[in-house]
Design a protein around this nucleic acid. Sequence first.
DNA 1: TAGTGGTCTAGACCACTGG
DNA 2: CAGTGGTCTAGACCACTAA
Lengths: 271, 271
Amino acid sequence: MSAVSLFDAKRPRYHVVADALSRAIQQGTYPVGTLLPTEAVLCARFGLSRQTIREAIRLLVDLGLASRRQGVGTRVERRDVSQTYVQRLEAVSDIWQYVEETSRKVLKVADIPAEGARAPLPGDGTRKWRMLEGLRFAADERRPIAWTQVCVAPEYAAVTDAKDRDRVPIFSLIEQRFGVKASRIRQDISAISIRSDVAKLLRVPAKSVGLSVVREYVSTQGDVFEVTISVHPAERYHYSMQLDLAYASDSAFTADRLTLPAGLRGSSSKK
Amino acid sequence: MSAVSLFDAKRPRYHVVADALSRAIQQGTYPVGTLLPTEAVLCARFGLSRQTIREAIRLLVDLGLASRRQGVGTRVERRDVSQTYVQRLEAVSDIWQYVEETSRKVLKVADIPAEGARAPLPGDGTRKWRMLEGLRFAADERRPIAWTQVCVAPEYAAVTDAKDRDRVPIFSLIEQRFGVKASRIRQDISAISIRSDVAKLLRVPAKSVGLSVVREYVSTQGDVFEVTISVHPAERYHYSMQLDLAYASDSAFTADRLTLPAGLRGSSSKK
DNA sequence: TAGTGGTCTAGACCACTGG
DNA sequence: CAGTGGTCTAGACCACTAA
């Protein structure tokens, strides 16, 4: 009877439909695991064309609330939209940019047992990791911005002989050469007092304040195949990141399809 | 002509179109920053209806290759599909958990001009931000894990009078009360030497090493409405995070070009 | 104002799933 | 087999942007 009055002029109709459906899901009208009414039914119920209904359902799918299966129907997947902040790190742009804007100088190469490193490495004493120790310089600066230690699992130690070892991130060399991809990167940041030998290389007073970043690269199989430690003088490095709200919740389906602000910058900032 | 032979029976036509367009972008036919041909032109060129063309462009947009703007056109955003590492922070679980497992004690409340704070605040001297200074304790520890300063934009200063001010993150109070949501959180982490007055409160020696975390909460409108500073004693706090490799959205489409593992996204259903 | 993308309709046929 | 979602057409009008 009042099918017309459901829609105001402002909001697209598929927004209104998606809104109604997601609210119904939220209220338990359509429990998780059940099927939503078919597109045909929804067309009739809302008095809209099929494409409009499909567009509404597409929103739900994009939000993770539902999934579609041809021949079956539209299944309710979750009851709530989880608000999630995401930090995006674009492999090609950000990581590489960092590497390209800086230069690395390797000072020492060694094979060390798992216990001998600065950061805990997986494996027992019989497993020797290839370790590269060195400094990283900003493009235009004389003083190093970081002291680094890179540890590579024995299976992939060979990549450290590559010509472009200093220009390309090690983990991407491993991917090229062995097809092992980092499906996860764990990162731990802490403040430290810089040890005297490292301080000397960084040209800062011993025991001065530094930022330590430890990264573990985890393969698709779940193995840690590379661990890196960086120590930055406090005044030469900030770690900054940006977290974007991934999903807007119920009534605001104006979710940012168009705003793709390129994610974070792991930037070095000079004083 | 060959318009017909372009499409085989198997693949949807919009896949074929998206493929052709993304290849053209990749090859530099449409450089980044320029506009793709209009939908009408593409309809004519491929001999397809507008919706089919739009569906193809939607794939490009979902992949981050292009963006659409009403009244302007479809802009090329990048040349390659990039693999992206994402850090997910679930608002409900992670942030709240942190707050629930710790307790806050406010020591000082004041209204300060933008210049008076520890971190740069938006606005001029006439804009006074509500500032709360205090300590945060782990549930079972006597010694504080952080000294914190929370600055709230004048419009929302009232939330700092709330009863549950110490149990709930301020930014979520602002959302509840004013409907202003943090659509973005900028975070800057650095190592510092702890100032003596703060050190005293944290019960560490003056000038000892600390980790400073500055967060800016940005509203949907792009305004910074809350800024927080935390100073942690180095030995009592690490910042750790996990970045997961994310795959581009439509696996059916990307699989053709990029040989990604199939069937990553969507339902977990089986045959 | 002209031209863009955004929304919407009312049809159609196909591919897939389940009984 | 009947019914589902997937693809596709040929129109239409609207909202926005730039000249």
